[in-house]
Design a protein around this nucleic acid. Structure first.
Length: 143
DNA sequence: GCCAACGTTGGC
DNA sequence: GCCAACGTTGGC
């Protein structure tokens, strides 16, 4: 099966892109929502994920890859919740904001938009390509 | 099994 | 700070 794409949210004042880069490899744990956990369990090694800054920033800042899938959440004493390990791949040339995503017709079906509270969501290949494309262009309204 | 109350997340 | 969306809990 081919590579899948994901979007993972974190509050940057708690754990942001720079934290992940500083660590070189991070454990994505603490997810306590069944839909998000199901998505975590569906990840395969080598899958790629957008790193999204929630609450502060509200934008996709970088791309990471799943380095170790199928882990048990080390922060969960019951051992029922899932986790994965991730490595940073690259920072986007410029962040792509939620506002811009919502303003892009090709992205209005994204889980990020449809279910805003979901912290780990799938991204369709065409949506992934659209966002990467947008990140290579100049931000709207700037010169 | 239904549903009201409550808690949490996250955008605005 | 507010509120909508969603999930969980507990009374009945």
């Amino acid at each position: 099966m081919g590579k899948s794409y994901w979007l993972m949210k974190s509050e940057p004042d708690v754990y942001g892109w720079d934290h992940l880069v500083a660590e070189a490899e991070g454990t994505w744990d603490g997810v306590r929502n069944h839909t998000a956990a199901l998505n975590l369990r569906s990840m395969k090694k080598g899958d790629e994920a957008f790193f999204y800054h929630s609450n502060i920033g509200l934008e996709i800042v970088g791309i990471m890859k799943i380095s170790q899938p199928g882990l048990t959440d080390p922060s969960d004493p019951t051992g029922k919740w899932a986790a994965v390990k991730v490595k940073p791949v690259r920072k986007l040339k410029r962040p792509v904001s939620l506002k811009e995503i919502k303003a892009t017709p090709a992205l209005e079906g994204m889980e990020l938009v449809r279910q805003s509270r979901l912290s780990v969501s799938p991204v369709r290949p065409e949506e992934w390509a659209t966002i990467v494309g947008v990140s290579k262009r100049k931000a709207p309204g700037t010169n």
